[in-house]
Design a protein around this nucleic acid. Structure first.
Lengths: 186, 186
DNA sequence: GAATTAATGCAAATTATTTTGCATTAATGG
DNA sequence: CCATTAATGCAAAATAATTTGCATTAATTC
C-alpha cells in the first residue's frame, strides 16, 4: 500500500492525527507536545504514531507542511505588485489566526542548530520559495522588473514572521507597505 | 542566600551548568535537550537542576538571556548610522558562529503559541529593544532623524535572524546594506 | 469473495524522565 | 571557630515515554 485512497484507513487515521496535532499546536509549544498526548487527543494508539512517524518532530513537521500548503495559495493578478500584495496579505492573515505561527515555530524548533540535513525541512521551506519564484518568473516574462527571491524573503517574509513570533500585529496595510517599499527599491 | 558572591558555590554550579547547556545548544535542538543530559555534561546532580530551574525551558531561557547580554554590546560611534552598523555587524557575527542562533531558537521554541505571559521572555527580548531605543534616543538628542524601534526590528533584526534560521549567510556587508536601506527611507 | 498484505490496537516490557526523602557539604553570621 | 542556613548529591520511588510481540482489523489483489 503505497498511496492509499483518500477514504482509506491510513488516510483516515492520518487525518485525525493531523487534526489533533494542529489543535494542540494552537494551545502550546511544539516542544511541549508528546506522542502520547497527540495519540490520546486523536483517539489513536500511540504505537501507531511511533511506527509511522518515529518521533514527535517528524510528525509535527509533516503537519506543518500540510497546513502551509493549504493556507497560502499562489495568486495570479496579472501584475507583480498585485501578486505580492495578495500573497503577503494571505500570509499575514494566517499568521494572525490562533496558532497561525505554529508552522514557523515547528520549523524553528525542529531545525538542527548545526548546519546539515533535513529532508522535511527543505520540503517545507521549498514550498514557500517555489511560490515566490513562480511569481517573480511570471513578472519577468511580462517584462516587469522583479527582485530576487532573497529580497522577498529578507524584506517581506522576515518582517511578517518576526512580528508573528513576537506578538506584534501585522495587518494587511503593513504587508502592503512592505511590498511597496520593496518594489520601489528595485 | 539571595545574591551569593561570584565565587560562591551557587554561582559556581550555575556557571558549569550554563556552560554545559550552551555547549549542548550548539550541538542540537533546544527541544532535544533534557535536564539529565545537561546535568551529566555539567557534572552536577540532575536533582539540583530540577530544584533550581524547574524545567529545561526555564533553564535554557536563562542561558540565552545571559549569553545575549555578553554577545552584543551597545556601540556609541557618535552617529546613528555608525551605531547601527556596528551593532548589526556584531549581531551578524555572533549569528554566524556555531550555535549563534541558539538564543533565537530557544526563544521561539519556548515561546507560548497562545498569547499570554512569560517573564523570562519579556526580559530576554527587552534587552535587545532597550539597546535599540537607546541608540535612537541618542540620535534624536543630536538632532538626527531617527526611525522607530519597530522599523529597526522589521528591517534590520528580522532579515538577520531569518537568514540565520534558514542557513543563509549574512555577512557584514549585508548588514551594512540593511542599515543604509533603512536610513535612506526615513 | 477468499487470500494476501499492511496497518492498527493492546498489553507488557523497557527505558527515560521527574520527584522525593534524607544525609552531606559549603557558605554565612555571629 | 561554632552554629545556622541553604544548596547539593545520592538513592529510591513514582511517572512518563518508547519499544516490542502478537492478535485483530481493514484494505488490496486476484
Amino acid at each position: 500500500m503505497i498511496t492509499p485512497r483518500p477514504g482509506g484507513r491510513t488516510a483516515r487515521t492520518q487525518a485525525v492525527v493531523f487534526e489533533a496535532a494542529a489543535a494542540l499546536l494552537a494551545e502550546k509549544d511544539p516542544g511541549q507536545l508528546s506522542m502520547t498526548e497527540i495519540a490520546v487527543r486523536a483517539g489513536v494508539a500511540a504505537t501507531s504514531l511511533y511506527r509511522r512517524w518515529g518521533d514527535v518532530r517528524t510528525l509535527l513537521m509533516e503537519v506543518a507542511v500540510e497546513r502551509l500548503a493549504r493556507e497560502s495559495p499562489l495568486p495570479d493578478t496579472g501584475a507583480l505588485a498585485g501578486d505580492l500584495k495578495a500573497w503577503t496579505a494571505a500570509i499575514a492573515g494566517s499568521l494572525a489566526s490562533p496558532g497561525g505561527s505554529a508552522f514557523f515555530r515547528v520549523y524553528v524548533a525542529t531545525a538542527p542548530t548545526g548546519s546539515a540535513e533535513m529532508p522535511g525541512r527543505a520540503r517545507a521551506i521549498g514550498r514557500r520559495l517555489e511560490q515566490v519564484q513562480a511569481m517573480l518568473d511570471r513578472a519577468s516574462a511580462r517584462g516587469e522588473r522583479a527582485p530576487g527571491v532573497l529580497e522577498v524573503t529578507d524584506h517581506l517574509l522576515a518582517p511578517l514572521y518576526m512580528r508573528a513570533l513576537f506578538g506584534v500585529p501585522a495587518d494587511p496595510a503593513f504587508a502592503e507597505a512592505l511590498v511597496d517599499r520593496l518594489l520601489s527599491q528595485t
